[in-house]
Write a protein that binds this DNA or RNA. Structure first.
Lengths: 354, 354
DNA sequence: CGGAGTTACTATACCGATATAGTCATTGAG
DNA sequence: CTCAATGACTATATCGGTATAGTAACTCCG
């Protein structure tokens, strides 16, 4: 049996195909009576409704937006910060009826989602901007929103004030009296171990901003931190880095971490080495991951409102799509959300040295 | 400037549109030399590649599969079990180059993702099968895979052996010597409080299977549990239910919980009421959420391999899509993955009563 | 009673590709 | 030397809709 299309129904009812289309998509264009008859016939023929692909082609809109996630999607789902972000996007998008399509930046031979999947716009989340996937999205001239990336002119962006947040974290330690402060960072793909040029070798925008913020406060206090790149994120996140720092001849009394997950690993490692946190070692995280509250000691960290970031991103994207559709030309906005230092129990003045 | 299409390039190079199409989609159909010239011209004109929507219409395939999630997508992202599942799907799908589109079952006026978004197939995850969204997917005759749902003939399904798992959990308590065992379940939307007919009122397939499993073991031991439906999942998950059970005149010495998250709430509540776990109250969860290991005491629970479930689901779906495409007609498979009781520190023999 | 304004449809022209069946040289085998 | 088999393109026919501009019959109003 051949497939049922608008034409099938049109022939059956004896009207034009366009009228059947209107029965489904623009009910005000025909009489209720005829519409009823058409829907009835459609039902009888087992018609499901206008074919999404055909409609997408004709209308030029697909009803789905993409999110480009750098690394394997797998990782995006194990990171509580990322899932919160995605959840907020989904929530913000729900009332619009748009679906959310996950795009991985890793490309397969012959299939590049960023190039080959139909969508009305996309969020680019914490991706290296020089990824080919991002290039494809740009070339398609899709409405885009950059999140946690360096803002470029012409593309709306959502960022948090990473630098100020990091600065306040470092400042907090300085004010507690610490002078030996080191740093554990996370740059996907970077060689683990001590990093000579933390600013230059920062891979992500966020990574760079946080380093800049930490150094703002530390350098002002005349402190030069040792910066260590974590080992693979899954092997106890931060434990090897912590060990390296704590086994120096002149170990730090405080450690600043790129994330709460990392901080968790650092705290655990310190404790397993017999160091009391915060009495002998202070640790500060970043993000205010739910984990930060659950930990013992509860973690001092820099809060970012991930959900707000997600909502803002989704809103910016829908606005951008709308703008393109209506030909309107509002200004491109770059949003910078605030961060806030949350002082809990993982920081204290340094131990007395005599 | 008009949009660049295959035709634009064809005119420019002086070949037929079909040849340009082949240059992009079937390189073996033309000489390398001509192909080079075409790609060059395409580049010069700023052509991005075949339009995904047009291609989807012509080819009948979109390069994306959907996942239908019952409740607000928001919830799906806060639940560690669900995110693990999604991550595993994403991972399994990655090598195929297919994108993953999230569909919420909640419909908006005028826009029903399950009906209106183009896709090649879909996973239906723990949805009430009588949702209209599921109906739309079925009517579209899309390749589907049901996960954590009652298996229906003709549609591949992936389930875990919830019943056997629940049975072993209950059996474990019975063998420890417990005789007063109660249950906390979770049925989205169901009225909280004591449930008279736990099997009949179970809303989800999973919920029903677990109740059946618990009762298998309990009834065999002559035990009739009180079954309580949790309050809203976000308010401390399980704490109100636990309070209700523990403040009975004849309180239980052990509680079986629908999930680890619920069990976590129950344990916390018990502890706050001054009950030692497991000395005075044993608690068993379900899922083996990472949380189960982190808790103190570590939770005795029934492990399901969520990642394996996700991988199996994705594999079944791609297989199903492939089958439709090639017209092949392999048998529909119903997979039942095993569960395993993991005994940790939240269960012990009941306190001695004299 | 004439002309402007609805209402309810229809005709035509795309949307931007791909599949399939040619066409026309070339090449190789018998 | 002839005929079948390749190789490299092209012509034509969809894929299943939607936008836009008609058209014909009716309504309203002064």
């Amino acid at each position: 049996m051949a497939r049922v299309t608008l034409q099938t129904i049109a022939d059956r009812v004896g009207v034009s195909r366009m009228t059947v289309s209107n029965a489904f998509s623009r009910p005000d264009q025909l009489s209720a009576q005829l519409r009823g008859k058409i829907l009835e016939a459609a039902e009888a023929l087992g018609y499901v409704g206008p074919d999404p692909s055909a409609r997408a082609l004709a209308r030029g809109t697909t009803g789905a937006v993409g999110v480009l996630l750098t690394d394997s999607l797998r990782d995006a789902f194990t990171d509580e910060v990322a899932t919160t972000f995605l959840g907020a996007i989904a929530e913000e998008l729900a009332p619009t009826g748009m679906a959310l399509t996950l795009l991985s930046a890793t490309e397969q031979p012959g299939m590049i989602p960023a190039r080959d999947v139909a969508m009305d716009g996309a969020l680019v989340y914490s991706c290296n901007t020089h990824t080919t996937a991002v290039d494809w999205l740009k070339r398609r001239k899709l409405p885009l929103v950059f999140v946690d990336q360096v803002a470029v002119p012409g593309i709306p962006s959502i960022n948090i004030d990473d630098r100020a947040g990091a600065r306040s974290a470092a400042q907090h330690l300085v004010e507690l009296g610490h002078r030996r402060i080191d740093i554990v960072t996370s740059n996907p793909g970077l060689e683990p171990g001590v990093i000579a040029d933390p600013i230059g070798s920062a891979i992500s925008h966020v990574g760079r901003q946080r380093v800049l913020g930490w150094l703002d406060a530390l350098e002002a206090a005349g402190i030069t931190p040792t910066v260590v790149q974590e080992w693979r994120p899954d092997d106890g996140g931060g434990s090897q880095a912590a060990r390296l720092l704590l086994e120096q001849t002149d170990p730090p009394t405080a450690i600043l971490c790129f994330s709460d997950v990392l901080a968790f690993g650092v705290v655990q490692t310190a404790q397993s080495l017999g160091l009391a946190v915060p009495q002998q070692l202070s640790v500060v995280g970043f993000d205010d991951n739910p984990l930060a509250q659950r930990m013992r000691p509860a973690l001092t960290t820099v809060r970012q409102d991930v959900a707000a970031k997600g909502r803002a991103a989704a809103a910016a994207l829908t606005a951008s799509i709308e703008r393109v559709k209506t030909g309107g030309t509002g200004r491109v906005r770059h949003v910078l959300l605030p961060t806030e230092l949350i002082i809990r129990n993982s920081t204290a003045p340094p131990p007395e040295t005599h």
